[in-house]
């Protein structure tokens, strides 16, 4: 169900006992399947509820500082979880194949393409998306620099560019315009705002505001 992992419906953090009970509930469904596969499979075809339990796995993530216990199909990418189930639509899909960078987020502080990782692989990790970058109303210096330098046109690649830029600065890969161009080349901008993106990053670098 697309809507069920909306943050509002995320259950409050359960104690260990409860979590284990949930796990047992799920494993017993798996167990039932092992015992009578044809029967359960047939049921699954007709009974959404059984199919849903069978297809899902628990995963704990900390997203933009919020701890979340989620239940997702193992085939769901981190990108699709964020966008379709958690309504964090700032992170964009441009290719789904790790070729464009539109889906860049931070996992434990490192930039990754969220389309190239399954949500269940990030168990226990801290994830930051564009929605979690600013400090309340106070924009991150890179966000401000992108506005000042017009580091975008349509804005579609922008969340990915900004997440990448923040990481690029942290990594120490923003030493010169040339180095920025290399280390920002995983993020395509079809509107061609590259010159402005480089200037924005250089500006933050020179202002020493890499926080």
């Amino acid at each position: 169900m697309p809507q069920e992992n909306k943050p509002s419906s995320v259950p409050p953090k359960k104690d260990k006992q409860e979590a284990r009970r949930d796990f047992l509930k799920q494993s017993s469904a798996v167990m039932a399947l092992a015992l009578a596969p044809p029967l359960v499979l047939k049921a699954a075809q007709h009974d959404e509820a059984i199919a849903a339990v069978f297809e899902k796995m628990p995963v704990n993530l900390e997203i933009n500082g919020k701890k979340m216990q989620l239940s997702v199909e193992p085939r769901v990418t981190l990108l699709d979880l964020l966008r379709e189930q958690l309504a964090l639509t700032g992170t964009k899909k441009g290719c789904d194949h790790g070729q464009c960078g539109a889906c860049t987020v931070h996992v434990n502080g490192q930039r990754i393409n969220s389309c190239l990782t399954l949500a269940v692989m990030q168990e226990g990790k801290k994830i930051t998306t564009i929605e979690g970058l600013s400090n309340g109303d106070q924009l991150h210096p890179v966000q401000e620099a992108f506005i000042r330098h017009d580091g975008f046109q349509c804005g579609y690649c922008t969340p990915g560019q900004i997440m990448s830029a923040v990481a690029c600065l942290h990594e120490g890969h923003a030493g010169s315009p040339e180095q920025i161009r290399e280390f920002m080349s995983g993020n395509i901008c079809r509107c061609g705002a590259y010159d402005n993106i480089v200037n924005a990053i250089m500006d933050v670098k020179n202002g020493g505001q890499t926080a």
């Binding site: 809507q3 966008r83 998306t129 564009i130 992108f146 506005i147 017009d150 804005g155 922008t158």
Partner: peptide
């Protein structure tokens, strides 16, 4: 002049068509 929609674009607040989620979609 800076873009009037710049802030929405740098915060992920700009909603493109696929970002909308009508109920029961």
């Amino acid at each position: 002049m800076d873009r009037v929609d710049g802030r929405l674009k740098v915060t992920g607040g700009a909603k493109y068509f696929a970002d909308h989620q009508p109920a029961d979609m």
